[in-house]
């Protein structure tokens, strides 16, 4: 079972990578810097991946060390917004050599158009990843047209 998952993962990563390259060619720096008005620059916290299947759309939000109670997920008119705050306690007595981790408030928005049903959203937080599962509307699902 792991083998299947791993190979699916690997092929998915390859898909991500190919998609990224294609977008770079098309848009210069990809989706992150051009295109959608609410998009965030590359490297913004938290990172996001979106996948879809015929039945659902899943959004993976890479938000390690965030208190799930401080995460806000909302959907309005096809716009999914994820906001929250990550507090990084500063050690007063210590001297810092490196501070690469993001701290503070964040917000990311993803336009899902009218494809998803706002009443059927499910969000879980595990190992620092928030996964939001949204069901696609029947009308938005790919259909096989029967040829008579």
């Amino acid at each position: 079972m792991f083998g299947r998952l791993t190979s699916l993962q690997n092929s998915l990563v390859e898909d991500f990578w190919r998609l990224h390259q294609e977008l770079d060619e098309m848009l210069g720096d990809g989706l992150s810097s051009s295109g959608a008005i609410r998009s965030s620059p590359r490297g913004s916290f938290p990172a996001i991946n979106v996948i879809q299947t015929p039945a659902e759309v899943q959004v993976f939000v890479f938000a390690p060390g965030v208190d799930p109670k401080k995460l806000d997920v909302s959907i309005q008119q096809g716009l999914l917004t994820i906001s929250g705050e990550r507090q990084i306690p500063v050690q007063e007595q210590a001297s810092y050599y490196r501070q690469e981790r993001f701290g503070g408030e964040f917000r990311r928005a993803i336009s899902l158009a009218d494809e998803v049903d706002p009443e059927r959203v499910d969000a879980t937080y595990r190992d620092g990843i928030l996964r939001v599962r949204l069901q696609r509307r029947e009308a938005a699902r790919p259909r096989q047209i029967e040829i008579r």
């Binding site: 898909d15 991500f16 990578w17 996001i48 991946n49 996948i51 299947t53 659902e56 899943q58």
Partner: peptide, 13 residues
């Protein structure tokens, strides 16, 4: 990941 998953957007690759 569910079966038939297709990547739409990815910051993490």
């Amino acid at each position: 990941l569910p079966e038939q998953a297709e990547a739409v957007y990815a910051d993490v690759r």
